[in-house]
Amino acid sequence: MDAVLGQLFAGLSLGSVLLLAALGLALTFGQMGVINMAHGEFMMAGAYTAYVAQNVIADAGVALILAIPLGFVVGGVMGVVLEATLIRRMYLRPLDTLLVTWGVALILQQVARDVFGAPNVDVRAPSWLSGSVDLGITQVPAARLFILGLAVVAVTGLALVLTKTALGRRIRAVVQNRDLAETAGVSTRATDRLTFFIGSGLAGIAGVALTLLGSTGPTLGSNYIVDAFLVVVAGGVGQIKGTVIAAFGLGLLQAGIEYSTTASLAKVAVFALVVVFLQARPQGIFSVRTRSLA
């Protein structure tokens, strides 16, 4: 029983990691249709932000909490710079964007190598996040519980921004009908840039969170980028709730299959299931009806 509950939590936790990695993409790829291969490198930048914060501030806990907003800003600013210099010029050529941003990803990895060195760096977990928390029915790693909470906060925050604020309304208007939004007086340029800032910033937050679980090195982003795209596509392009359901669905599926088989097989099975699912439902779990994303 304990093992099953532990495994259930492992699946939820993996889902929250996938969600954090994919949430920003759900905005930039899902809403704007930009295939940004450098999204993973914004996560890497967030992870290194946590590392730098820890070197400046001695207390690992304070450093981590501070690194979350800092990572958001660092990722966001990198995103805006990329959008303003390169992506803006190729909104109508998604395949070119794919190659260009992949090139940017490689450059950013090398920059990280030159600045921080090729070996992984060590980001220490604060004492209150190492070890397990007893939930009464089962014990769960504190770091994973923290990331689960962070993912929930990030999704809620994003949903609030999209539904309750003027900015959110503008973003949705531009996504659903760019021309009409522009005619109605919405500055689509400014909206695009802000959307990209938020999406890339979320990648930065994901990077900070991932330092608690895995390695912090130049290739951190490339480890997650394919999974992140998988989640967004399976969830349905243009839908945050689709991304949430897909992330937790894939996380539980991966953990469930892995427990009864092996990690390699689970990965293959999840890929195969997503392919079959997309055959039956190419638009993903949810889809938006729009005129611009035809």
Partner: peptide, 20 residues
């Protein structure tokens, strides 16, 4: 006896198995 694909980043399940 458990194998993880190269570059595998989530060891919750494998560690769960080790623990159990």
């Amino acid at each position: 006896e458990e194998y993880a694909p190269l570059g595998h980043t989530d060891f919750a399940t494998i560690v769960n198995k080790v623990k159990g």
